[in-house]
Amino acid sequence: MEGTSLYLPIVILLMQCSPSAPVTVSTNKHKVEVQEFSDAVLSCTFRTERDPNPRIEWKKKGKDVSFVYFDGHFKGPFEGRATIDGATVTLRGVTQEDAGEYRCEISAPHDSVNLGETNVTLKVLVPPQTPSCEIPSGAVTGSVVQLRCRDRHSIPPATYSWYKDNQQISPPRNANATYLINSRTGVLEFKAVAKEDTGRYSCLASNGVGPPKMCEGKHMTIEDVNVSAVVAAVVVVCLVIVICGCGGLVLHRNGFFSRHRGRSNVNYIPPPQEPQDFKHTQSFML
């Protein structure tokens, strides 16, 4: 018993001197991805050393840091559409304006380390929209033709696939293929179209968030070059050049382009002599 009584003050002293954990802040999900117009949960948990009522703040980073939750209230665009449980915030009906990086700060003035924080990044996903498609109505055989498809609103960016007459066009398997498909930019390019490429084309956009969307199909007709029309056009142009050249030559020979054309043929009249000159020319007769 005496030995125990001797050790008891030492144990009590060690318990008093042993440090307790200061304020700590953490999250169970640093990156949150939710679909547009759904709810987003921004997790934040904390533990304090001795302060039972720490101050909780949420801020959103951007060009300027703005308050989300401060002094027990939600601020700005979050007022009336967000709730807090402990330090975890739930945003209702998120849009692209809500996407960004958030910071949870816990301030415990009575702790040895009186401030802790953690960051949560919110990404708002947008399903595909109906893409805009640029499909030419016609082309001539052997020419280079590009078909374009684009959805500028989907997040993450959509990938694209092309269909001809409701059948998907498979990506080319070798470098000798007559066409190329870029699934990221949505471009279908024919190196040299043939009559067999005539058909109804449409494009499908998808990004894994919502159902894929397809643009309205459009018919593209490929025709052979009209050699007779081209020859006739060349002949007409040559005839026009020849006629213009001959006409210019005839006009030139007739003096139409003469440098003296248009001058008046008026006889030259010398200026009258001054009276003093006349006196000099008279003879003096006595």
Rank of each mutant, 00 (worst) to 15 (best):
V94N: 00
Q129P: 06
V234P: 09
F37T: 05
A233H: 13
F257S: 07
K164P: 11
S170T: 11
A205K: 02
G210R: 07
H73S: 15
C215H: 03
R173Q: 15
G255I: 04
G138K: 08
A175G: 13
Q273M: 10
A194D: 14
D224A: 10
L251E: 06
S38Q: 08
V227Y: 07
G76C: 07
N267G: 07
W58A: 02
N166P: 07
K279R: 08
E223K: 04
V32K: 00
F278G: 06
S132V: 14
S183E: 15
A192S: 12
S20H: 04
F278T: 07
G262D: 13
V120P: 01
Y201R: 06
P128H: 10
T90S: 05
N174Q: 06
H260R: 03
L6E: 04
N53E: 13
T88L: 03
C238D: 11
G262N: 10
I10C: 03
T121I: 00
C133N: 15
S206F: 09
E117G: 09
C104M: 05
S228P: 13
E57N: 10
T27Y: 01
R152I: 12
W58Y: 00
I169W: 11
V225E: 15
P271L: 08
K213I: 14
V124I: 05
A177G: 14
T24V: 11
I56W: 03
Y179S: 12
T198S: 06
R253M: 03
A194V: 15
P9N: 01
N119G: 01
G142N: 08
V65K: 02
V144I: 15
V240F: 13
H110N: 12
Y102S: 00
V266M: 05
I169S: 07
V234W: 13
T45D: 00
G80C: 01
C149P: 11
V124D: 00
V140F: 05
P271C: 07
R150F: 15
Q96T: 04
V187I: 14
W162T: 10
V41A: 08
V23E: 03
K191A: 14
L204C: 10
D111R: 04
N267F: 05
L286A: 08
A99L: 03
F67R: 01
F37C: 04
S202K: 10
Q282K: 08
M285D: 07
A175T: 10
D165M: 06
T48S: 04
Q167R: 11
V209C: 11
E49G: 04
A175H: 08
Q168D: 06
R259E: 08
S107P: 05
E117M: 01
A232R: 12
T88D: 09
I10W: 05
E97C: 07
A233D: 15
I56A: 05
A99Y: 01
P128I: 11
V32I: 00
V41P: 01
N267K: 13
W162V: 14
E97K: 10
R47D: 09
I269V: 05
A40E: 05
F37W: 12
G76S: 14
E105P: 00
Q276N: 01
G100Y: 00
A21T: 09
E216Q: 06
G3K: 01
T90F: 02
T118K: 00
R200E: 04
S66Q: 00
T95V: 00
L239C: 12
I222E: 06
V240S: 07
D111A: 07
N267V: 12
A158F: 13
E223F: 01
S66T: 08
K60Q: 04
G208E: 06
C44N: 01
H30W: 01
H30T: 08
